[in-house]
Design a protein around this nucleic acid. Structure first.
Lengths: 152, 152
DNA sequence: GTATACAGTTAAGCTCGCTTAACTAAAAAG
DNA sequence: CTTTTTAGTTAAGCGAGCTTAACTGTATAC
């Protein structure tokens, strides 16, 4: 607790640079695929969760069940999503990415990695090691916090 | 160049966690303000650039001049933006955040900091120092790369 | 076994962001 | 000085996302 100011400043500076940059790339990619942000966000969600019901979607994005249903329908039509009946509850539907949906999302993520790779490619071996270690610390701390709170 | 795999993995893991989380907070905040994402994005852009013309907006977000003009008009009406004539070119308009616009954006950024602060608050003093150093390295590398390429 | 709650769908209607097209006014080019 | 570009505005119209309301079918409560 000796240097809370230092780490907070570093965090803020980094977040500013990183978010400013990644938001732009994000929008550009979504636009290039022809998908809207809401549609793309659903694909991303499925990418992380693997599979989930429509009600989870409507909760997560804070929209009505009707809106979630309509969005999902379009993504199914486009071939990015598969919608199957939940065997344990025949009211519910299980959504998951199709292979082309998975491919699309992966490409989007890949593209966002590219800038970061470019940034780190200029670092010295020593700095690379430091950065890698620090990011592992951060990632673990974030995951731990999320699981403790039950977030996903 | 001895550990490119290690740093790339660390970067990817961190980006996944961070982006997943921050996208959500971002959307929630925009929604809570009653502003749409395009509107909020413009405010963010102005926050970083300080001042810019409409043509820069339409370029940055890849929309027509008409769209940019309409979006800006709404933000002016809402009191978040000030639109003044450019004294050096009387065709152009200079956009900048009003005080209430600046306040709104700051709150949004603040809110996104909160999660990060929570994550780092649990770190040991030693880890904090490591993370702070690493983030400074990254921030400098990113800024240097952007200025070299003329990005903003 | 009936009543209630839940998961999802469908339709009507609204708002919003976006585009094109037509226009004004100022700067730059010739 | 005339022509052409550039910066921005306005209007009409389209498509997307969202909401509410009405509805189907399934699970849960009592």
């Amino acid at each position: 607790m000796t240097k809370p100011v230092q780490i907070n400043q570093s965090l803020r500076a980094w977040m500013d640079v990183f978010m400013h940059r990644s938001m732009r790339g994000w929008n550009q990619f979504a636009k290039s695929t022809g998908l809207s942000m809401p549609q793309f966000s659903i694909l991303m969600q499925l990418h992380y969760k693997g599979v989930c019901g429509l009600s989870e979607i409507s909760e997560r994005f804070d929209v009505s069940a009707a809106a979630a249903s309509q969005l999902a329908e379009k993504l199914v039509q486009s071939g990015y999503l598969e919608r199957a009946e939940d065997p344990s509850d025949r009211r519910a539907k299980l959504l998951r990415l199709s292979s082309s949906g998975e491919k699309l999302v992966s490409e989007g993520i890949q593209e966002r990695y590219r800038w970061m790779d470019e940034v780190t490619s200029k670092l010295s071996t020593e700095d690379s090691a430091k950065v890698a270690e620090a990011l592992n610390i951060l990632t673990n701390a974030a995951r731990e916090m999320d699981t403790r709170k039950g977030n996903t």
